[in-house]
Amino acid sequence: MNKIKNVCVVDDDELFQFVMRQHFERLELVEKIHKFTDGEQALNYIKQNLNKPDNLPDLILLDVNMPYMDGWQFLREYVKLSLPAGKQIKVYVLTSSTHESDLQRAKEFPFLAGYLVKPIGKNIIKEILTELLPA
């Protein structure tokens, strides 16, 4: 069975990170899960691996509210990156905010694959991953 190679979970909430990891492991659809607790760490990882497409994530689950560099700041830096040709990364914004203003802000980044409001159950994760799987 095919698997998704790399998934990045960017969130400063340790409990959320733990739950996500459990779900991913149980679904057995992902080869490697990368954990980052703020945007800056995630951005640095991607920058360092721009020449190693195998290490680049296929999926990023991005929290909005984080220290040092939040989700929006990450996205502003991320769009500037020049990814290797043919490399597709799906980015989902995950947020606990149900505010309309945050949703509007997400629309500033049209390349986003989706805007998800926490809590996120196992089924949603399965759906997202299934979509990504090579046919």
Partner: peptide
């Protein structure tokens, strides 16, 4: 939205 609802949703997910 962020500092209360965030950890609360994580708690719900973890209970599940």
């Amino acid at each position: 939205a962020h500092n209360l609802r965030g950890p609360a949703t994580a708690l719900i997910s973890s209970v599940e």
